[in-house]
């Protein structure tokens, strides 16, 4: 009996957040298996096999799992769940979609987005947008848990040599859900949730065009670009840029908030950053209450100057 971690991938590349989930798994039990379900995903299976600390990789290749839709993937996970004490995944849009469905199939109360593990059944998780921290204890036999990737270090991608086992697909209703397509934001910048530096813009940017100021600064710093909900709702940037309670949670070494007032819902997604810089012309903006370095100034003057001086 060990821990099962559900890998997230696109059949080619393993999502880095899976490495954070492996670390969380190892905190519970030294015996960590990772499920890689997909199609033509041999490369991912190989890379998971090399992750330090992983004992076993369960590989399940079938067209049912090509797009890792919750309906078929949850059935597969539930079918092997009785071999494990814990089933973990990163609290990404994928993990949040699939794991509660697994829990429903198994009559287990899932636990979402944990930030700390106190014991095999006791976990810490933020509630109310991080304005309160709950310590909770699971009374289920199998614990089904999503982990917040920013609060667990990534396991080393090399150094392991796991046993690789193929498992059969789970016969499931295939008609419930079909993948039709995706529009992924193309970017050469670092991925938002794992970037070392993040530069985010808010309503104060005023337009989609003005966001270029943010992008120029981000490129100079080799940073990811984020945004507040206000900037996404206004259509300045796509939805996947959103940092906050219901968007992405980031904890980079440096977070630069530009033209962001700092609603509690936004702070929930970035207040664990090591160093926070806020640039806002409103001296009263709540973002300054969490910023290490605040600059009360017009962002249209300061940000280009900053980009130029770096």
């Amino acid at each position: 009996m060990g821990v099962l971690v559900v890998a997230e991938h696109d059949n080619e590349v393993l999502q880095e957040s899976t490495l954070n989930a492996v670390t969380a798994g190892l905190e519970i039990n030294a015996e960590v298996s990772v499920l890689v379900a997909g199609q033509n995903c041999g490369g991912v299976v190989d890379s998971v096999g090399k992750v330090a600390g992983v004992s076993k990789v369960l590989s399940c290749e079938h067209e049912l799992y090509e797009h890792q839709l919750a309906e078929s993937l949850a059935g597969l996970i539930a079918s092997i769940a009785s071999d494990y004490t814990h089933i973990l995944a990163a609290a990404t849009s994928q993990g949040k979609n699939v794991l509660p469905r697994v829990a429903g199939l198994l009559d287990v109360a899932p636990i979402s987005d944990i930030t700390d593990i106190q014991s095999a059944d006791t976990f810490v998780r933020p509630i109310y947008a991080g304005n309160a921290i709950a310590t909770v204890q699971s009374e289920d036999t199998i614990k089904i848990v999503t982990i917040r990737p920013t609060t667990f270090d990534a396991a080393a991608a090399d150094g392991g040599s796991a046993e690789i086992v193929s498992i059969d697909p789970h016969d499931d209703k295939q008609d419930l859900s079909q993948f039709m397509g995706q529009e992924l934001t193309q970017s050469d910048r670092p991925e938002l949730t794992s970037a070392r530096i993040v530069v985010s813009g808010g309503r104060g940017m005023g337009s989609s065009e003005n966001f270029q100021i943010i992008e120029a600064l981000a490129d100079k710093l080799n940073a990811a670009v984020g945004a507040s909900r206000a900037a996404v709702d206004a259509g300045y940037v796509p939805n996947d840029y959103q940092v906050g309670q219901t968007g992405k949670v980031v904890a980079p070494d440096l977070y630069v908030a530009v033209g962001i007032s700092g609603a509690i819902q936004h702070l929930a997604g970035m207040k664990d950053s090591k160093v926070i810089v806020a640039i806002n012309k409103d001296e009263e903006a709540p973002i300054f209450q969490v910023a290490d370095y605040g600059m009360v100034a017009d962002l249209f003057d300061v940000v280009p100057k900053l980009t130029e001086s770096l």
């Binding site: 849009s93 994928q94 993948f179 995706q182 939805n239």
Partner: peptide, 10 residues
């Protein structure tokens, strides 16, 4: 709305 952008399912 997914982490990488948008996904469409039937």
């Amino acid at each position: 709305e997914v982490d990488g952008g948008l996904e469409t399912v039937s």
